[in-house]
Amino acid sequence: MHVTGWIIYNDSLPGKKFIDFAQWLEKAAIQRASNVKIMSNSELLSFLSQSELSVLTEEQPSALPDFVVFTDKDIYLAKQLELLGISVFNSSEAIRISDDKILTYQQLATAKLPIPKTIIYPKTFTSQQLKPGALQAAIHRLGFPMIVKEAFGSFGEQVYLIHNKADLIQQIKNLATKPFVLQRFISTSYGKDLRLHVVGNKVVAAMKRQSAHDFRANITAGGTMEAYEPSEEEQKLAILATQSIGADFAGVDLLVGENDSPIICEINSNAHIRNLFDATGINVATFIIDYIFKKIEGNTNA
């Protein structure tokens, strides 16, 4: 079966890690004799009118691919491609939920999966503070230290550890109208977490991340990594978390709770894979492309 595909990345972002992920996927697809092309989302214009719904490219008319893999979070472009009947991995809805940590926690809570106790800060159009009683109720439920986490962000850069009420009030003021959550701090996971990469119904690779100097374990924040053999409970939880947002594949970050019980921290629908390869020697791109081919060929048990 001759399959064509686009691998879409965002060239407006600094650094090489975004094109790097796309290139890993491209190589894996070529090994499957697939005709694939790496494209930036800035090369694809979604066109809408009363009589036409299409994607404009430099090459017009452009033959549409059988599948598209997103290493980016351009939800509107993903939706446009789906409306054109193209198989998109991950789906626009999975990307939308994963990109918004508030939506993610709501899905996880609905699925009754373990997450840190979380309070969604009310939407505001100014830097208005919570009413004193409401703020005190949040502090009573979560305690200090407390995590303040923006709904949109990557690499742990929009996550803050708050130690007292004065700092909390100041951080809320700093965030102004941005959406964010307040969360109970999982002290047993200070400076360490687990990244499990799920493809379909399997965990295909995992690593443990640790930092000696930061409450966050992200590699970008200075953490170190090593291969990790997840327990059955951890694997099951990562798979259920991925399924809860409707993703075909995802990087799931687990915190370490009391008695080593796993707690879901975040789900990344387009998690980069180079660090995981460096830690484990496992190329997740091969598993992703194999999964996509099975789905396209009609194997629903991929």
Rank of each mutant, 00 (worst) to 15 (best):
S46Y: 14
K131M: 04
E52N: 12
I282F: 01
S269G: 15
A238T: 04
F89D: 01
I292L: 12
P132Q: 09
L168Q: 01
I289E: 07
L161A: 06
L175C: 08
P65C: 04
G85H: 08
Y190E: 07
A212Y: 07
A22F: 00
D74L: 08
I169K: 15
K27T: 12
G246Y: 14
F155P: 01
D278C: 08
L182F: 13
I264E: 02
A78F: 15
Y76S: 05
H163D: 11
I172N: 04
A205S: 11
S12Q: 15
F215T: 02
K37I: 13
S12R: 10
A279V: 01
N35S: 14
M1L: 08
V199A: 02
L48N: 09
V159C: 07
E229L: 06
K123A: 13
L182S: 07
K295I: 13
G85W: 14
A279F: 03
R216S: 01
Q50I: 12
I7E: 07
A22N: 01
S46F: 14
K178E: 03
I8T: 10
E150L: 06
T104K: 05
G246D: 12
K202T: 06
N259T: 06
N268C: 04
A33R: 15
H197S: 00
L161M: 13
K294V: 00
I245P: 11
D167T: 11
S46C: 10
A205C: 01
G133W: 05
N301G: 02
E226A: 13
C265I: 06
F18S: 03
E93V: 10
S42T: 15
N299C: 04
